[in-house]
Design a protein around this nucleic acid. Structure first.
Lengths: 217, 217, 217, 217
DNA sequence: AATGAATGAGCCTTCATTCAT
DNA sequence: AATGAATGAAGGCTCATTCAT
């Protein structure tokens, strides 16, 4: 019954959005009475939280296998595939849950255990991938990039998962490569250095990278 | 008056989130009566739409100057700076408006003119940047990446704009570089090519990139 | 089982008040299923009525012994003691049941047999107590006085039963004495008699009693 | 509008009891929408509290005049009259509000200022009335007696206010007389004193008073 | 134009009661 | 007989919207 209600909640969220996400709609879609819903969930927020955790766990179970690939790049490939497929399977649901997650009432109740973050962070540290100055920030950034790309794809109702995975992979590796060994000093307002530095020693502006690019082509 | 109401709406959205975003709160924050609000906006949705357009236009005005930089990389630099600063100035507002944008009622009414997309697409076509197979997709992806990164940074209440711009730039250029000249054929299930190809001829998996990376270091 | 449920109902009523008095809470406190409750009671009202009768009967059993004291004053002493102790043992319960009793649905179903009223009326008629013009009214008034005093004491969470009994006794005897032989004619708007009359011939105003009081002291 | 709603609340409480006292019923009886109710009262509890205060104030205004009677007995007469008339005017309302008052949420919010208690206490201290050992307890007891008597009369739907006032006066004065100068020592279980003491020196049992009574008659 | 009191549909939640097991 | 999951009417409350002033 809990499963039925959670799935109903997910579908309501997907179908009618946050506006139409109410307990009556969920109960109706689940084919049960509103009273039954409250027999299994303390309230609407509890239902939402449970749904978040279901999605989290669902992803986490699949993603754990990524750790079996000892090679960093392969593990990352795998993880990206899982992440994209998961979020792409129900992009609207993922996005709306993400929004709900920012509500303080829900945020606090959400157990952070077994999150994708820890998984990705562990993989990033592995052999074969461009090492990052600040692993924590890099992890969060990559997740944000993935989420951003997949959400947008979902909104456009793309169907080509393979193509999407390719683009996400490009974005992730591009970020990792560009940020590899980036220094953390402030240099936004400062004049650009006259002499180009190796890509793995500094963060790049579009212009410096582009100059290198154009030389190659 | 319209301006006052829009700013009030923006502030309410930022302060109290979607939950607290109601017409009475907006009118109160604006210091006018609820009746006045309805004199200028047909309804709540109209207010929301107008706010979206204000944010869009606001950005567009600043971003237009990017076109003055004839050099592609410089123009991109400029555009990224504007985009990040704009969205980072009011990250919660940006994100919540983005969510609202997914509601069909609002989506349809939103005029796509003068959007960031056209701007970015034009710049991507310029000299000095890695050229893309599918410019349209690349444009959307980059916007999604920027939005994802800045939203996440906003949620974490980061304050280092310069650092954020650096990371966004890295992500954008990383994506562009990696995707440069990527083919569009499906090859997800296909076996990986044994011999690495130049980066501008194919989209890369983590493993192939990583192999190059490790050779460099 | 009936007894268990009734006691559970009593405890719920005491603990959580009218607000928290619901069938699920009663069943839970009784340690049985809600279904069992409905096996023994036709509904919530039936349960409430049964509880009222239990309290009534309980009191009545103890109070019956008062009739063994052939002397009026002693019998009254005894009855007061029982009444106060009974109600004071669970003052909140007594009061809330009293409130419930005013609901028409419950009132009609409540059998008046074996009530405290008949007992008290019989005792009031006995030798040695100030005789009343209208025994029925006096009986009801005394019960109201007792209930009022004990309820108030219970609400203040007094613990001194002996002191309370003393005050109740004073009130009861005070009433009986003052009302002894009171006439029943209307004289509210009439001018006060100039010459004080004996206490057992008329109902007294504060001023006439007071004048006697001050002479005594 | 506040007045209309309060009166509607009072009528609903009287007509349908605590069970039927809900915001929709109040709004309907007031002839306004439920929304209007919430424009003037923060919630159901706020409405209840306001009603309590209205009743309190209403009484207090009338009762204040009692202090004009410098003579204790006259002042007491007056106060009793006001109290009985007030509570007798709407006995069910008074009783149900009294019950509600025991709910902690309401109790705390109720400003104790200008209560009947302070008024009665002041009058009890005046010249011409039997002085009490513990004025505070006496005050509370008298209020309890009055409330008890009037509630009971109201429940029986008596109509003879004058008669009721007479009985209440008797009860009040009886209590005051009997308790006058009562000692506070414990003597419940102790054997009764063989030699009668003056009424104003001790609290009496039914038997000792009765013996005096029977001698008089 | 501006005001803001009034409206009422609709949401969240509780709880008395039923009934299949 | 006992169980307790399921039901759904009903109640408290919010908020978008209207309209008389």
């Amino acid at each position: 019954m809990v499963a039925i209600l959670l799935e109903a909640a997910a579908q309501v969220l997907e179908t009618k959005g946050l506006e139409g996400f109410n307990t009556n709609a969920v109960a109706q879609r689940a084919g049960v009475s509103i009273g039954s819903l409250y027999q299994y969930f303390a309230g609407k927020d509890a239902l939402t939280i449970a749904l978040m955790q279901r999605e989290n766990d669902r992803f986490y179970q699949e993603a754990l296998a990524a750790l079996d690939h000892l090679d960093g790049p392969l593990a990352l490939d795998y993880l990206i595939g899982v992440a994209v497929r998961q979020q792409f399977a129900r992009p609207r649901l993922a996005k709306l849950l993400d929004v709900e997650e920012s509500r303080p009432e829900l945020r606090t109740a959400l157990s952070g255990k077994g999150s994708m973050r820890t998984l990705l962070m562990e993989i990033l540290a592995r052999e074969g991938l461009p090492q990052q100055q600040d692993a924590d920030v890099a992890t969060r950034d990559l997740l944000a990039i993935i989420r951003g790309l997949v959400d947008a794809a979902g909104e456009r109702e793309e169907t080509d998962t393979a193509g999407l995975i390719r683009r996400v992979t490009a974005a992730v590796l591009g970020y990792l490569t560009m940020m590899s060994g980036a220094d953390t000093e402030r240099n936004d307002a400062a004049p650009r250095a006259e002499t180009p530095q190796p890509a793995d020693k500094r963060s790049e502006s579009a212009s410096t990278v582009a100059s290198r690019q154009s030389k190659r082509s």
